[in-house]
Protein backbone atom coordinates (compact mmCIF):
# COMPACT_ATOMS: atom_id res chain seq x y z
CA UNK A 1 0.00 0.00 0.00
CA UNK A 2 1.24 3.51 -0.77
CA UNK A 3 2.11 5.82 2.09
CA UNK A 4 1.02 9.42 2.58
CA UNK A 5 4.61 10.41 1.78
CA UNK A 6 4.50 8.69 -1.60
CA UNK A 7 1.24 10.45 -2.39
CA UNK A 8 2.68 13.76 -1.23
CA UNK A 9 5.58 13.39 -3.69
CA UNK A 10 3.04 13.33 -6.51
CA UNK A 11 1.33 16.59 -5.47
CA UNK A 12 2.40 20.12 -6.54
CA UNK A 13 3.90 20.71 -3.06
CA UNK A 14 2.99 24.41 -3.18
CA UNK A 15 0.66 24.43 -0.17
CA UNK A 16 -1.73 26.73 -2.10
CA UNK A 17 -4.76 25.60 -0.03
CA UNK A 18 -7.08 25.42 -3.06
CA UNK A 19 -8.12 21.96 -1.99
CA UNK A 20 -9.46 23.30 1.28
CA UNK A 21 -6.73 22.05 3.58
CA UNK A 22 -3.65 23.84 4.81
CA UNK A 23 -0.88 21.84 3.19
CA UNK A 24 -0.22 19.34 0.42
CA UNK A 25 0.79 16.83 3.09
CA UNK A 26 -2.56 17.22 4.82
CA UNK A 27 -4.24 16.68 1.46
CA UNK A 28 -2.15 13.51 0.94
CA UNK A 29 -3.33 12.18 4.29
CA UNK A 30 -6.90 13.05 3.29
CA UNK A 31 -6.53 11.13 0.05
CA UNK A 32 -5.22 8.10 1.86
CA UNK A 33 -8.08 8.26 4.35
CA UNK A 34 -10.54 8.74 1.46
CA UNK A 35 -11.97 12.01 2.85
CA UNK A 36 -10.49 13.84 -0.18
CA UNK A 37 -10.65 13.23 -3.93
CA UNK A 38 -7.81 13.76 -6.42
CA UNK A 39 -9.93 16.24 -8.41
CA UNK A 40 -10.05 18.66 -5.47
CA UNK A 41 -6.42 19.61 -6.12
CA UNK A 42 -7.27 21.90 -9.02
CA UNK A 43 -3.70 22.98 -9.87
CA UNK A 44 -2.75 19.35 -10.41
CA UNK A 45 -5.68 18.87 -12.77
CA UNK A 46 -5.36 22.14 -14.65
CA UNK A 47 -1.65 22.79 -15.04
CA UNK A 48 -0.03 20.85 -17.82
CA UNK A 49 3.35 20.54 -16.11
CA UNK A 50 1.77 18.20 -13.56
CA UNK A 51 0.40 15.83 -16.19
CA UNK A 52 2.82 12.98 -15.47
CA UNK A 53 2.31 13.34 -11.70
CA UNK A 54 -1.45 13.31 -12.10
CA UNK A 55 -1.36 10.15 -14.16
CA UNK A 56 0.80 8.40 -11.60
CA UNK A 57 -1.36 9.66 -8.73
CA UNK A 58 -4.48 8.27 -10.35
CA UNK A 59 -2.72 4.93 -10.69
CA UNK A 60 -1.71 4.69 -7.06
CA UNK A 61 -5.12 5.93 -5.93
CA UNK A 62 -7.13 3.40 -7.94
CA UNK A 63 -7.02 0.59 -5.34
CA UNK A 64 -7.72 3.03 -2.51
CA UNK A 65 -10.77 4.42 -4.26
CA UNK A 66 -12.06 0.90 -4.78
CA UNK A 67 -11.81 0.13 -1.09
CA UNK A 68 -15.01 -0.44 0.79
CA UNK A 69 -16.22 1.66 3.66
CA UNK A 70 -14.25 -0.41 6.12
CA UNK A 71 -11.10 0.20 4.12
CA UNK A 72 -10.90 -3.46 3.13
CA UNK A 73 -9.34 -4.20 -0.24
CA UNK A 74 -8.98 -7.64 -1.73
CA UNK A 75 -6.58 -8.72 -4.45
CA UNK A 76 -8.07 -11.94 -5.81
CA UNK A 77 -5.08 -12.45 -8.11
CA UNK A 78 -2.84 -12.88 -5.06
CA UNK A 79 -5.23 -15.06 -3.06
CA UNK A 80 -4.41 -18.73 -2.33
CA UNK A 81 -7.99 -19.58 -1.45
CA UNK A 82 -6.61 -21.10 1.75
CA UNK A 83 -9.55 -20.00 3.85
CA UNK A 84 -7.41 -18.74 6.75
CA UNK A 85 -9.24 -15.41 6.79
CA UNK A 86 -12.59 -17.19 6.46
CA UNK A 87 -11.95 -19.31 9.54
CA UNK A 88 -10.30 -16.52 11.55
CA UNK A 89 -12.86 -13.73 11.00
CA UNK A 90 -14.79 -13.31 14.28
CA UNK A 91 -18.00 -12.48 12.45
CA UNK A 92 -17.72 -15.68 10.40
CA UNK A 93 -17.01 -17.67 13.54
CA UNK A 94 -20.10 -16.30 15.28
CA UNK A 95 -22.28 -16.83 12.21
CA UNK A 96 -21.38 -20.49 11.72
CA UNK A 97 -20.13 -22.08 14.93
CA UNK A 98 -20.35 -25.61 13.56
CA UNK A 99 -18.90 -24.85 10.11
CA UNK A 100 -16.58 -21.90 9.65
CA UNK A 101 -15.51 -21.88 13.29
CA UNK A 102 -14.18 -25.44 12.99
CA UNK A 103 -12.49 -25.01 9.63
CA UNK A 104 -15.20 -25.94 7.16
CA UNK A 105 -16.41 -23.77 4.30
CA UNK A 106 -19.39 -21.58 5.23
CA UNK A 107 -22.88 -22.69 4.24
CA UNK A 108 -25.11 -19.70 5.00
CA UNK A 109 -25.27 -16.12 3.83
CA UNK A 110 -24.29 -14.36 7.04
CA UNK A 111 -20.52 -14.63 6.74
CA UNK A 112 -18.34 -11.79 5.48
CA UNK A 113 -15.54 -13.79 3.91
CA UNK A 114 -15.85 -16.97 1.87
CA UNK A 115 -13.86 -18.73 -0.85
CA UNK A 116 -15.46 -19.07 -4.27
CA UNK A 117 -13.88 -20.21 -7.51
CA UNK A 118 -10.57 -20.61 -5.73
CA UNK A 119 -10.34 -17.10 -4.27
CA UNK A 120 -11.76 -15.00 -1.44
CA UNK A 121 -14.97 -12.99 -1.91
CA UNK A 122 -16.49 -10.45 0.46
CA UNK A 123 -20.16 -9.97 1.40
CA UNK A 124 -22.07 -8.28 4.24
CA UNK A 125 -19.28 -5.81 4.88
CA UNK A 126 -21.63 -3.87 7.13
CA UNK A 127 -21.11 -6.65 9.67
CA UNK A 128 -17.34 -6.14 9.69
CA UNK A 129 -15.99 -5.10 13.10
CA UNK A 130 -14.23 -2.16 11.47
CA UNK A 131 -17.43 -0.75 10.01
CA UNK A 132 -18.79 2.61 11.04
CA UNK A 133 -17.48 5.26 13.43
CA UNK A 134 -17.50 2.90 16.42
CA UNK A 135 -15.60 0.19 14.54
CA UNK A 136 -12.78 -1.68 16.27
CA UNK A 137 -9.36 -2.40 14.85
CA UNK A 138 -9.95 -6.03 13.98
CA UNK A 139 -7.24 -7.43 11.75
CA UNK A 140 -7.96 -11.15 11.93
CA UNK A 141 -8.27 -11.48 8.17
CA UNK A 142 -5.09 -9.63 7.20
CA UNK A 143 -2.98 -11.16 9.96
CA UNK A 144 -3.80 -14.72 8.90
CA UNK A 145 -3.32 -14.20 5.16
CA UNK A 146 -0.21 -15.83 3.69
CA UNK A 147 -0.27 -13.75 0.52
CA UNK A 148 -1.27 -10.18 1.43
CA UNK A 149 -4.41 -10.68 -0.61
CA UNK A 150 -6.40 -8.64 1.94
CA UNK A 151 -5.37 -5.16 2.99
CA UNK A 152 -6.80 -2.21 4.85
CA UNK A 153 -6.22 1.35 3.73
Amino acid sequence: MVSAMEIYMLLPKTNCKKCGVATCMAFAVGLLGRQKKVDECTPLIEEKKYEAKLKKLREVMAPIEKASETGLIIHPEKCFGCGNCVVACPVNVAAEPTRTAVGLGPEGEKVILRVEDGVVVVNNLKECKRFGPSGTLCNACTATCPSKAIEFV
Binding site: G81, G105, D117
Partner: peptide, 23 residues
Protein backbone atom coordinates in the same frame (compact mmCIF):
# COMPACT_ATOMS: atom_id res chain seq x y z
CA UNK B 1 -16.96 -29.63 1.80
CA UNK B 2 -16.71 -28.69 -1.86
CA UNK B 3 -19.80 -27.44 -3.69
CA UNK B 4 -19.30 -27.47 -7.45
CA UNK B 5 -21.56 -27.06 -10.44
CA UNK B 6 -20.72 -27.87 -14.03
CA UNK B 7 -22.18 -26.60 -17.26
CA UNK B 8 -21.45 -27.23 -20.94
CA UNK B 9 -18.19 -29.02 -20.32
CA UNK B 10 -16.73 -26.57 -17.86
CA UNK B 11 -16.66 -25.78 -14.17
CA UNK B 12 -19.35 -23.19 -13.64
CA UNK B 13 -19.04 -22.38 -9.97
CA UNK B 14 -17.17 -23.79 -6.98
CA UNK B 15 -17.30 -23.05 -3.28
CA UNK B 16 -14.54 -23.79 -0.77
CA UNK B 17 -11.97 -25.09 -3.26
CA UNK B 18 -8.61 -23.43 -2.69
CA UNK B 19 -6.69 -22.05 -5.68
CA UNK B 20 -4.89 -25.35 -6.15
CA UNK B 21 -8.08 -27.37 -5.91
CA UNK B 22 -9.77 -24.99 -8.31
CA UNK B 23 -6.98 -25.61 -10.84
Amino acid sequence: DIVASFENGSLKHAKNLCRKGHG
